[in-house]
Design a protein around this nucleic acid. Structure first.
Lengths: 241, 241
DNA sequence: AGGAACTTGTGAACGCGGGCACAAACTGGC
DNA sequence: GCCAGTTTGTGCCCGCGTTCACAAGTTCCT
């Protein structure tokens, strides 16, 4: 099995402390809500309040949290600071995650300067690009190095997470080299299906796909039931023999 | 799940030609695979070949396609061009979708210049920013206009899709104004939960959340079962009374 | 023409995730 | 100390999505 993951779907043993994938995906949202509450000086909150802040319903939130352990107090609620730390620890945000970004186009530059990483334990440890003209440029206080040095950058910083923001054509090759250098998790912004060895985790973010999903729903709003499945919509497109 | 996305959850009537949400999310992937095959001159392909190109398994692909209609030929496969058109039509990509981007920071600039939109029926119809210094700047052949003109930009281009790339603090306000001006679908890059009226579709893309999900799996790889749920991991964090 | 090889479309089984509803547990007032 | 009010943690059920496995339909070879 060569993985090529779009959605994560890690069927590994879910015994003991295995937490449902759907829950994992929501923990960062709870974390964000807790941080916001904390900054406003709120010391404790009920599941109902937390759920509202996170945009989910309260029973889902309670069940999610119950997978981590019993961190609330019945009749009272959850202590904001305490819960925040527990979730951060569960995700692994109490440690430092060096991240290498490959591809310094517009998107790569945007990510290099994104403040939301540093505050969550992610540290941009290296920027890499193919274009010699871009080598030496500085984004977010980090100089760009040449693609030739990719392996050096990864191993020197012990980076285990790579971000691919190259054009599609280069993405697979870059991913191969990242994996070869020791990276075991990749966030892929290139609109390509990456094939990686077992044990390497890939998540894909595709901006155009998100828009297409919205477009589908927009179309349905405009034409609730075209029943165009029977009649051909335009004569020019007929099934070739 | 291609994730990135927080679950859409549109419980609207699924009668008649209602296609499962999970299928909708994969159609753009199939579309991309078909386009790639088409460009390589491939005229027809089996579900197995398509599935491999799209990174899913073949039975899932067949069931997905079966929701659109019976566009394949048993014993043969699918005609690439024909199927490509059918999927594009189903999603709504045969028409033009004007898109307005609000927030011309690094990410907004990256999106404005992203070539992947134009080729899929999305047309950047307007760029808007709060900062007077940025007004008049041109990205992707489109000048930036001031936030004050947002309503004008939206209505003049009949935009129904808005992209929010502002800081969190401004996101909700921007979303309200977009909706007020007639937008009914929003792609939100700000790390905030947006509240919108019924009938408005919101999809959220959160870069930091994607990394956090990867971090969780990385941590589990490194420490398969810490059983630290019993013993406190560090003494400094003890449950306050 | 007939059969072997192949491929689609789909019925059926299964597992995950969501939501309801309630027992268990805690607080505060009397 | 006891009772009313509150909120968590969870057992249960239901529906969606994934996968298997096979019948139905097509092509090719003899």
């Amino acid at each position: 099995m060569t993985a090529t993951v779009t959605d994560v779907h890690v069927p590994r043993e879910r015994g003991a402390r295995g937490i449902p994938e759907a829950t994992i995906a929501r923990l960062p949202v709870y974390l964000r809500a807790l941080t916001a509450l904390s900054e406003r000086g709120v010391a404790s909150a009920s599941s109902e309040e937390l759920a509202q802040a996170a945009g989910v319903n309260s029973s889902k939130l309670r069940k999610d949290l119950s997978h981590l352990g019993s961190y609330g107090t019945r009749g009272v609620g959850y202590e904001v600071e305490y819960l925040r730390y527990q979730i951060a620890r569960e995700i692994g945000l109490t440690q430092d995650w060096p991240v290498v970004i490959v591809g310094m186009g517009n998107l790569g530059q945007a990510l290099a300067g994104y403040g939301g990483f540093a505050t969550r334990g992610f540290r941009v440890a290296g920027l890499v690009d193919n274009d010699p003209a871009r080598v030496g440029e500085v984004y977010g206080q980090m100089p760009v190095r040449h693609l030739d040095d990719l392996e050096d950058v990864v191993s020197r910083h012990r980076a285990s997470i790579g971000v691919v923001t190259t054009p599609s054509a280069a993405a697979q090759q870059v991913a191969d080299r990242l994996v070869g250098a020791g990276v075991s998790a990749i966030l892929n912004f290139a609109p390509t299906v990456l094939t990686v060895p077992n044990g390497v985790d890939v998540r894909k973010v595709d901006l155009s796909i998100e828009l297409q999903i919205l477009a589908y729903h927009e179309q349905r709003k405009a034409h609730p039931d075209p029943l165009a499945a029977v009649v051909l919509p335009t004569d020019q497109q007929v099934r070739p023999a």
